[in-house]
């Protein structure tokens, strides 16, 4: 009786017409230790199905929301650097200017300093000029060359005689 209904169910099953409940019935029947010998080949099929159903996904899921690097923060950092840079830049430049132009608050002191500088410049200038004085020696040399003219006069006289 049971076998009869199972066989009917199997036929329906193979045509794809069984309901889920009926399939469950089949699965139950074939999970028994003993089944009708001529239906033996169905056993591994249903065994496979139920065994396969227990397989589980065991791999861990890295569900951490990926930390996408936010480029907004680069802009923020850049702005911070720029403002800081600007803030520290101004005093540095003004002190540099002071250093470059060397201002004196006391006019007397300034005058002293200027005369000192000028004296140094004239001193060095004179040194330069004194070396130029050696050019006079050259003039002397050329003057002596003038005597060559005398020699020419003499030769002229000789050639006239001939």
């Amino acid at each position: 009786m049971v076998l009869n209904s199972i066989e009917k169910l199997l036929e329906k099953y193979e045509n794809g017409e069984t309901s889920l409940k009926e399939e469950q019935q089949l699965k139950n029947y074939f999970s028994q230790e003993t089944v009708a010998p001529h239906l033996e080949m169905y056993k591994p099929m249903f065994a496979y199905f139920s065994v396969n159903k227990q397989e589980q996904f065991t791999k861990a899921l890295p569900l951490k929301t990926k930390k996408v690097f936010n480029y907004k923060w680069i802009a923020v950092a850049a702005v911070a650097v720029l403002t800081l840079g600007y803030y520290f830049k101004n005093p540095v430049v003004s002190s540099y200017e002071e250093y470059a132009y060397g201002t004196y608050s006391n006019p007397e002191e300034a005058l002293n300093e200027v005369t000192k500088q000028l004296a140094m410049i004239s001193n060095h200038f004179n040194k330069g000029v004194s070396t130029v004085n050696y050019l006079e020696e050259v003039n002397k040399g050329t003057e002596t060359l003038g005597y060559l003219n005398e020699m020419q006069n003499a030769t002229n006289i000789i050639f006239k005689k001939q």
């Binding site: 056993k43 591994p44 065994a47 496979y48």
Partner: peptide, 9 residues
């Protein structure tokens, strides 16, 4: 049976 189960797979 395991062997037949392999077959099904």
């Amino acid at each position: 049976l395991t062997d037949s189960v392999h077959w099904v797979a």
